[in-house]
């Protein structure tokens, strides 16, 4: 029964979208690290993508809201830095979602989301969010964002 409940919560949180890239969930992003039940309390461990990621507050609020709406009231959300978040935690399905959404997924090889060309040039090492950089496709000339590998 308890395992079923934990599994249910993982599923619920998998429906909470990332506030900046709504096409993937906070579970797919790898921000939710652990869900455990001890002494009637559900403990949720989350980790920030980047130290200064402004979305951390939103993650926490969204998790709270999602759990409350689904009838959970006894839970605690804790922040951890260990192990540090890495883009390696994203599955290939998640990476495909990013590409379909228009973001070149984390990999040493950039892929233009428009024409799928790997022939591109770095425009800016820093993009609109801490986790992305800006490239331009040399074939179709469209600019695009690339999810940095860390």
């Amino acid at each position: 029964m308890q395992n079923g409940e934990i599994e249910h919560i993982w599923k619920l949180l998998n429906s909470v979208p990332d506030p900046e890239i709504p096409v993937i969930s906070i579970v797919e992003l790898g921000v939710v690290r652990e869900i455990k039940k001890t002494d009637n309390y559900i403990n949720i461990l989350i980790t920030p993508t980047y130290s200064g990621c402004p979305a951390v507050k939103t993650f926490t609020d969204d998790i709270k809201e999602c759990l409350k709406m689904n009838g959970f009231s006894n839970f605690k959300i804790k922040l951890t830095y260990d192990p540090p978040w890495t883009t390696d935690w994203m599955s290939s399905q998640t990476k495909q979602k990013l590409l379909d959404y228009g973001i070149s997924p984390p990999s040493n090889q950039t892929v233009c989301p428009q024409c799928k060309s790997t022939n591109s040039i770095l425009v800016s090492e820093f993009g609109a969010t801490a986790c992305k950089s800006l490239y331009k496709c040399k074939d179709c000339l469209e600019p695009f964002e690339h999810f940095k590998c860390i």
């Binding site: 920030p48 980047y50 130290s51 200064g52 990621c53 402004p54 830095y81 425009v123 800016s124 090492e125 820093f126 993009g127 609109a128 801490a130 800006l134």
Partner: peptide, 20 residues
């Protein structure tokens, strides 16, 4: 514009680290 974003992104990382 790119450098404006770069310097402030570095700033944001450092604020986050300081917070920890």
């Amino acid at each position: 514009l790119e450098e404006d974003i770069a310097l402030t992104n570095i700033s944001l990382d450092l604020f986050g680290q300081a917070n920890g």
